[in-house]
Design a protein around this nucleic acid. Structure first.
Ligand SMILES: [Mn+2]
Ligand SMILES: [Mn+2]
Ligand SMILES: [Zn+2]
Ligand SMILES: [Zn+2]
Lengths: 142, 142
DNA sequence: TAGTAAATGAGAATCATTCTCAAAGTTTTC
DNA sequence: GAAAACTTTGAGAATGATTCTCATTTACTA
């Protein structure tokens, strides 16, 4: 059973952090759907069932989930941080439409390989790629 | 004489915006050095000679310079927007060291081409690429 | 040079995020 | 299973980058 719950719990134990109810609730909410999210949306979602989990705790938990390798900070739209979970998902890149705001997720393996090779030339060790582009989607082009 | 000043002035005229002193001062400061900058650093730099140019005007001018194709919003470090000018510079990508914070600028043409081809498959028209990676630089790896 | 519309500076407002601290929870030890 | 030792939590205050407001100034037009 090597699921996200186990990974998080292992991470917490390894770092002498406690396995608390809010942390489990937040983790579950993060993996309850598979799209990008921001803290505000997450708070709304959680708050329907668990009125006692505070924004502060959500903000405090994001770095833990990142450190555990379960989510990444993926985009920033109008001054708000966005996250997406990465555990259970392939690496991908984002094509963001400037008009309608829709996000296409595309396979990134080839681009990442090229990027890795490039980094090698600078003796740079990549731990996290961030690849994306803005433009116009099919529908918005006409 | 197709320099950045001319480009900016043409942009302003074309959009019925006025060629003001603060806008010229800000443009000059942006191109006075060739590194990344944030509004705060820019303000400090400008404020030494031109004490009457306000932060508000600098913030208001950034989108104009972006629209004119002279700068781009390039990175965000700890909640602060960073910019770099792009006129007169080749496209490049950023390798950011997580330890020392240094930024390596690397040639991005090959990666961008690949990204363009990928986008084509989704009928997506790219106007702006954003490619980068985090990790450890040569010095910080030991 | 006057008339008109846009731009500016100063500081207030906004708003996402971080911080503070007293109260509550978790783990360890007996 | 209860107390000690330590961590986490919620609530709301604080912070800090960015945006807004509005009275005043400036740039352009004729
Ligand atoms: Mn995604
Ligand atoms: Mn750069
Ligand atoms: Zn679109
Ligand atoms: Zn380094």
């Amino acid at each position: 059973m090597q699921d996200h719950v186990k990974i998080f719990e292992d991470y917490l134990k390894k770092h002498n952090l406690k396995l608390t109810r809010p942390r489990h609730v937040i983790l579950a909410a993060v993996f309850a759907n598979h799209s990008h999210f921001d803290v505000d949306a997450l708070y709304d979602q959680i708050h329907q069932k668990y009125t006692d989990v505070s924004r502060a705790t959500i903000y405090r938990t994001m770095p833990l989930l990142i450190e555990a390798g379960l989510i990444k900070r993926s985009l920033r739209s109008q001054a708000r941080d966005h996250y997406e979970h990465i555990f259970g998902h392939k690496h991908h890149l984002h094509l963001i439409c400037n008009k309608c705001g829709s996000i296409i997720e595309a396979e990134s393996a080839a681009v990442e390989t090229l990027l890795q090779n490039l980094a090698k030339r600078y003796n740079f060790t990549i731990t996290e790629c961030n690849i994306g582009a803005r433009g116009l989607c099919e529908k918005c082009r006409e």
